[in-house]
């Protein structure tokens, strides 16, 4: 029992370190996805990072009218692992990248302001657990 407890503490510490490191690498990848080739998106100044594990995560934000936004997300460079869904405040789905091979980014032209809910999850067919990083940018 004592051995198991020590093993668990070790796993926890090493696990936390590895997860933090994974996330840090992904932040750089996500930045590149957000900027794209034309580099015409400006970050909202925030980095949305988490360790996803069979759960959906959601948050609210506001897309202001007259702006084009980009949502970028990654959980690894080998494949498109992150599914993100944008809903209005009534819960109606406005977009999900699930329909588009989990595309790592998508742009949204927003003629009128709208508060939205952004839901994020890992594609369970590809990855069941890991760090996910999301960024939001607006077009210059």
């Amino acid at each position: 029992m004592k051995k198991l407890a020590l093993y668990s503490i070790f796993t926890l510490i090493v696990g936390f370190g590895a997860n933090a490191q994974d996330c840090e690498t992904l932040v750089k990848d996500c930045e590149n996805i957000l900027k794209g080739k034309e580099k015409n998106f400006v970050s909202d100044g925030q980095v949305y990072t988490a360790f996803l594990d069979r759960e959906k995560a959601e948050f609210k934000t506001t897309f202001f009218g007259g702006t084009t936004y980009r949502i970028a997300a990654t959980a690894g460079t080998d494949d498109e692992y992150v599914i993100f869904t944008v809903k209005d405040m009534q819960g109606t789905v406005l977009f999900t990248n699930r329909k588009y091979k989990n595309s790592s980014y998508w742009d949204f032209k927003v003629p009128r302001t709208i508060p939205v809910i952004i839901e994020t999850e890992l594609d369970m067919d590809k990855k069941i657990t890991g760090c996910a990083v999301m960024m939001i940018g607006f077009k210059r």
Binding site: T11, L12, N19, D44, A50, D53, T62, T129
Partner: peptide, 15 residues
């Protein structure tokens, strides 16, 4: 699985 949760909420404030 090691499901260490970094946090339990996300907040986003427009730039």
């Amino acid at each position: 699985s090691l499901n260490a949760k970094f946090d339990d909420k996300i907040f986003s404030i427009p730039s």
